[in-house]
Amino acid sequence: MRYFWLLLLSLSPLLAQALTFTDLSRLTQTPATLSGQFQQHKYLQALDTTIDSNGQFSYRRDKEIRWQTLAPVADLLVMTPQGLSGSNTAAAMAGNTDSNPTLALVGTLFFAVMSADWQVLQQHFSLTGSEQGKEWKATLIPLDDDIRLAVQRIELQGDAYLHHLELYEVSGDQVRIEFTDLTP
């Protein structure tokens, strides 16, 4: 039994520690601006297929998120606290948050994820996760009934910045996004 405890103690620095929203605030940065590249993989359960896309994004705190898809089809989505606008397929999602409370909530949550605003996310999600050194993994489970209608869970990974996001929808669809070349 003594050897078991010695082994456990010797491995303890290698084991990941439980994660809280306070820990995430300490581990992550919330720059005024952030830009980078993304690779997105959207699995559509009804078609049993994955659609891959890539592009660039830029973020200005409390102002806007520009999500520019470069391939397979060029598209631009601009999200502000007031609503969505865009070109091509993004235009179909456009709307004003004053007249659409669901759109307002989606916008608030997307801004919170992109800006590491853990206080906002704490109001809408429970958290499980771990940290190891400067890297962390978090799973967000919706607390709000409105969010639970669409989202099962969101899995996030990163260090000072978010590098990986997975969104699991109630419909069975999944979105996986990798963020690279991040520049504040």
Results as ranks from 00 to 15, higher is better:
30 T>Q: 05
30 T>L: 02
34 L>R: 01
35 S>C: 08
36 G>T: 06
37 Q>L: 06
38 F>T: 04
41 H>E: 13
44 L>V: 14
45 Q>N: 10
47 L>H: 10
50 T>A: 11
51 I>N: 03
51 I>W: 00
54 N>S: 13
55 G>K: 04
55 G>L: 01
60 R>G: 06
61 R>N: 09
62 D>S: 08
62 D>I: 04
62 D>H: 11
65 I>T: 02
66 R>M: 09
69 T>K: 07
70 L>F: 08
71 A>L: 10
74 A>G: 14
75 D>K: 13
75 D>Q: 07
75 D>R: 10
78 V>G: 02
82 Q>L: 13
83 G>S: 04
83 G>I: 13
85 S>H: 01
87 S>K: 09
88 N>P: 04
90 A>K: 04
91 A>L: 09
92 A>E: 13
93 M>T: 06
93 M>N: 14
98 D>Q: 11
100 N>F: 04
102 T>S: 07
103 L>T: 01
105 L>E: 06
105 L>W: 11
105 L>V: 07
105 L>H: 03
106 V>Y: 10
106 V>G: 07
110 F>E: 14
112 A>I: 00
113 V>M: 10
115 S>F: 05
118 W>V: 06
118 W>Q: 08
119 Q>E: 15
121 L>W: 00
122 Q>W: 04
123 Q>C: 02
127 L>R: 07
127 L>A: 06
127 L>I: 06
128 T>P: 01
129 G>I: 00
